[in-house]
Design a protein around this nucleic acid. Structure first.
Lengths: 165, 165
DNA sequence: TACAATATGTTATATGATAACATAACACTT
DNA sequence: AAGTGTTATGTTATCATATAACATATTGTA
């Protein structure tokens, strides 16, 4: 697979390779296969560095692999698999997908989405998790899934704006 | 407009009428109009009692008003207006819309979505809001919008399950 | 009334996701 | 290695959600 056309530091490249290796280990432990397709999708998401929609992923698959045509079910099935094993997140407010930086973590992951640069940073947060659990218990609500997506300007973009614009 | 076909207690009917009145006041203060279409959409959402998708709303508009055909842009524009003035929320994890039970409140609204009965309950929550603000400030992230959607079983459904099933 | 601004109607199309069925790859048994 | 069940992918069609672009109508105001 040819590398996607984004600027990547060497350390990020290394981190992405490690993320794929971790994914492989997780799949092995669950006795499921990180097939070529699934690995390609995960790698594209890691390398791109920003959330990608399913159709953008289809285009990248066609551009960066030897596949000629990729139909929607192909990529959606790969995404479903990666979601199931918590290797990626779906960002509902963007209809886009992004790697899960820590698939084994159980608690709440908050996603900070920069409306300026498009980067979505994930952060574990026990405080928010506790607040949600308390809130839910007050309603006797049994939590199964939670979507926490914060949009705004990231620190980097805010600093840049202050200096230039 | 004929009432939508759902069971409604008198107190809920009254509450919904008041919610529409509040919406009118809010629009007056902002010098914008809660037109017939917009009021119909808001009323349908209030009466239905559960989140509704845009296309379901189109069907209900056709069924419950004297409109013959309602095209997508018609309902989406009404939804955009109601969203802008915070009279409704979009639930991203469902692609559906639900009334905002307190349009004037500024802080975080958490939405508890029951996967069993479909009811989405909204709850203001200062604790979660503070936790989010703290989390964001640690990343020097400037919050503009937040989506907090919790899915699971509501208290009522859990009680019913315990007794019957 | 005439005008500008706002709102709605109408047609077409973009974007996101899945159903249903066919084929291929894998993994296990004999 | 051949057969068999399971898992994964390919393929076509379609559903579901949302918007662009332009036409017409309604409203508020000079």
């Amino acid at each position: 697979m040819t590398p996607v056309d984004t600027v990547q530091t060497n350390s990020r490249k290394q981190a992405n390779i490690k993320a794929v290796q971790r994914a492989k280990h997780i799949c092995e432990k669950s006795n499921v296969r990180l097939t070529t397709l699934r690995e390609q999708v995960l790698t594209l998401l890691l390398d791109y560095g920003k959330p990608l929609g399913a159709y953008a992923l289809m285009d990248l698959l066609e551009a960066n692999t030897d596949r000629d045509r990729v139909a929607p079910p192909t990529v959606y099935r790969a995404l479903d698999f990666l979601l199931k094993y918590r290797l990626i997140h779906k960002i509902h407010s963007l209809n886009a997908y992004t790697p899960n930086s820590n698939p084994l973590r159980e608690d709440c992951s908050v996603i900070l989405i920069c409306t300026n640069c498009g980067i979505a940073e994930e952060t574990p947060n026990n405080t928010i998790q506790q607040a949600i659990n308390l809130c839910a218990s007050q309603y006797r609500f049994g939590v199964e899934k939670q979507v926490i997506e914060i949009s705004g300007k990231c620190g980097t973009c805010r600093t840049t704006e202050r200096n230039h614009g």
